[in-house]
Design a protein around this nucleic acid. Structure first.
Length: 586
DNA sequence: GCCGTTTTCGGCCCGACTGTTTTCAGTCG
């Protein structure tokens, strides 16, 4: 049993607990905290349990420690099983409906004997929900809307969709004379791989009146493409856009802006320890300020931006991408946060498809586009021979492609170097899709899985480990094969993959395609800690696809990567040396 | 359920908006 399974069980306990009628919100939080604590552990959970070292970890008291020990040693958690047995599954389903929390869910299910979403819809239409104490017509109508929304948009959005909407609204608001500062906040600013809603924070002058705020809110809710107004006040309004995504605007005075921006950037998990820290320093944090002292003698600690905000708490500035309660506060305290990689640090690209396989542009067109982007090398990696659907290259066609690359390199000399690469399939048994004598002739080899997704976790891991051990493999492509919001990755032991890659000197890519963003940022940091250099690869199938590097950089930053941790920030000579060192070591 | 250099009991991050109320509960972020 690994720590993620333990964390998942604790999270499930928290979810089920809050649906109990006499639930204590603090008990719920205790399990949520414990789940986070466990997933942040560096040590092996089974060893910690065996050696009795769970005790003393902050956040794990006697009860939860006992429960974890039971789970790890027996593989079962009786407390969780009791909770599951006592909680109708419909209550869990209803949690996904906006506006329905534990209290209302209990009232609905227990008093109206609702067993399905269809039951609930019928109860609403028959006015039985509105008749419940504490409910009314409007609540019932909201529930109906929530049901419809869940049916249509019960999912999250890919980062680029949300980013485009967020920037469009930010720019529209910035054009208003009433607005002093405006910025996108929330999970979008933290560059999460998917986004549920968009938060925007804007400021008006410190002396702005109510009418000014109303004008801004009218503008916001009156934008083209607003499908529905969920709520509208003078400091907060929520809308649903035509794309189905929800957008919230928070309006504050300009003096409050840095605090509000920080507050609405989150993550909630980052705020909780930060506020605890503030309290220990005789300060309190809310969205309107950082205050010293206690009520009623609160004194604002002036901050003109977030840098000063963190400084007031004795911390180095924490970039939004890092605000996930993954150790960033401790690192900021010690002054050990990395300087995160930026797009302009990238010197070249290594994972690009051309018309030789399933790409839309010729190598020449791609090379020109790279020059325009100021890049100095381009790795062409068309698919290998067995990938029929993607027009994979036979050995014969490879030879012709290499001749073309040689000609183009002569033509582009001094501007760009084109490297001969391949995205070579990892076959079912872990062998590669070209013979060794062919692999030996590439400048570099990306090895990827594109078939047999349903092998057992053990088989899939062994398959991947065998590929990593192949001396001609330079980079592992999209290591889990996930497609965000579509399908999970193939099940394999990613920690074992990282371990093997570190041992063999193989790089693991961040596939920058916004549908993939694979390696996941949570593992990027682990790979970095094991000394693995990470290429940020666009997996471009066209010139436009080169721009996806932007999303890969976001994930690299979330994974704490500095420029030095990224393979393709290296100048050409250094990159070639690194690729050859790998060759020489076999 | 966890925690403690004011506390082993009584706190636990904090505020906006909505709707059903007539002073507040529920939900959300």
């Amino acid at each position: 049993m690994d720590k993620n399974q333990v964390a998942q069980a604790l999270e499930e306990v928290a979810t089920l607990l809050q649906l109990k009628k006499d639930a204590s919100p603090f008990e719920v939080r205790a399990y949520e905290n414990a789940a986070r604590t466990i997933s942040a552990l560096d040590d092996d959970i089974e060893r910690l349990v065996k050696e009795g070292r769970l005790k003393g970890i902050p956040g794990l008291g006697p009860t939860i420690t006992r429960r974890i020990e039971e789970l790890v040693t027996t593989g079962r958690l009786s407390f969780l099983e009791e909770l599951r047995a006592a909680t109708p599954s419909i209550k869990l389903e209803l949690l996904r409906i906006q506006g329905l929390g534990p209290r209302r869910i209990n009232a609905i299910v227990d008093q109206l004997h609702i067993a399905s979403l269809e039951d609930l819809e019928r109860a609403c239409k028959e006015d039985r929900v509105a008749a419940l104490p504490g409910f009314g017509k409007k609540t019932q109508e909201k529930i109906l809307q929530g049901l419809a929304f869940l049916a249509e948009h019960g999912h999250r959005y890919l980062y680029p969709v949300a980013e485009a909407e967020g920037l469009r609204m930010r720019d529209a608001l910035a054009s208003l004379p009433e607005i002093v500062r405006v910025q996108v906040a929330g999970s979008l600013r933290r560059r999460r791989e998917t986004v549920k809603d968009i938060d925007i924070v804007a400021s008006v002058a410190d002396n702005a009146d109510s009418a000014t705020r109303q004008r801004v809110m009218n503008f916001f809710t009156g934008q083209p493409g607003v499908r529905q107004i969920i709520s509208k006040g003078e400091t907060r309004s929520s809308i649903i856009l035509a794309s189905g995504i929800q957008m919230d605007l928070r309006l504050v005075t300009d003096r409050q802006f840095p605090y509000a921006l920080h507050h609405f950037t989150g993550a909630k998990e980052h705020h909780i320890p930060l506020r605890r820290r503030a309290l220990s320093m005789n300060m309190t944090i809310n969205e309107y300020g950082l205050f010293r002292g206690k009520e009623p003698d609160l004194e604002l600690v002036p901050c003109k931006d977030e840098v000063e905000f963190y400084a007031a708490l004795g911390l180095a500035y924490i970039e939004p991408e890092l605000r996930e309660d993954m150790g960033e506060i401790e690192a900021a305290e010690r002054g050990e946060l990395p300087t995160l990689v930026e797009e302009r640090d990238l010197r070249g690209v290594l994972h690009v498809h051309s018309t030789w396989s399933d790409g839309k542009n010729t190598i020449r067109e791609l090379a020109e586009a790279c020059c325009e982007r100021g890049l100095s090398y381009l790795g062409i990696t068309d698919h290998s021979q067995s990938v029929g659907y993607a027009n994979g290259l036979s050995v014969e066609n490879l030879q012709r492609q290499w001749e073309e690359i040689d000609r183009l390199n002569a033509e582009f000399a001094g501007r760009l170097v084109i490297l001969k690469g391949t995205e070579c399939d990892i076959l079912k048994d872990g062998s590669l899709d070209y013979p060794d004598e062919v692999l030996a002739r590439f400048d570099f080899v990306i090895a990827s899985i594109h078939s047999h997704f349903t092998l057992s976790p053990q088989e899939q891991t062994e398959r991947m480990l065998r590929a990593i051990a192949n001396p001609y493999v330079t980079i592992i492509g999209h290591p889990t094969g996930r497609l965000l919001l579509e399908r999970p990755g193939y099940t394999l032991d990613i920690e074992a993959v990282i371990e093997a890659a570190a041992r063999h000197g193989v790089f693991i890519e961040i596939n920058a395609s916004p549908q993939r963003l694979d390696l996941d940022w949570r593992y990027v940091r682990k790979a970095r800690d094991r000394g693995i250099l990470i290429p940020i690869d666009p997996d471009a199938h066209s010139i436009a696809g080169l721009a996806d590097m932007h999303y890969g950089v976001g994930i690299a930053r979330k994974g704490w990567l500095a420029a030095a941790d990224v393979l393709n920030t290296r100048p050409l000579e250094e990159l070639v040396a690194l690729l050859q060192r790998r060759k020489a070591s076999r």
